[in-house]
């Protein structure tokens, strides 16, 4: 049984709190376990908020990459609720 893992990019640049988290969550609802969601954000709260979200939802933050004018948050879906 092979499982195809998706790598989805969610562009939330330009939005403010709670934009990045709601965008991430909308992608998370459609995602399967093992999928990667890459969230692009300019909101300074995105980093701590995504860190809090993964802790609360039981998912994994693989990497935080600082780009020139935005950050990329690489989230691995390891738990699906609801």
């Amino acid at each position: 049984m092979s499982v195809v893992q998706q790598h989805k990019i969610v562009d939330s640049r330009g939005t403010s709190c709670p934009g990045p988290i709601t965008d991430l969550f909308k992608a998370y609802r459609k995602a399967e376990i093992g999928d990667i969601i890459e969230l692009l954000a300019t909101d300074p709260a995105a980093k701590p908020d995504v860190q809090a979200w993964v802790r609360k939802s039981g998912n994994e933050l693989l990497d935080i990459i600082d780009e020139k004018d935005h950050i990329r948050l690489i989230v691995k879906i390891t738990k699906k609720g609801r």
Partner: peptide, 11 residues
């Protein structure tokens, strides 16, 4: 509404 939507995304 910001708190409500965020809390909902956090389960």
């Amino acid at each position: 509404f910001m708190i409500a939507t965020t809390a909902a995304t956090m389960g």
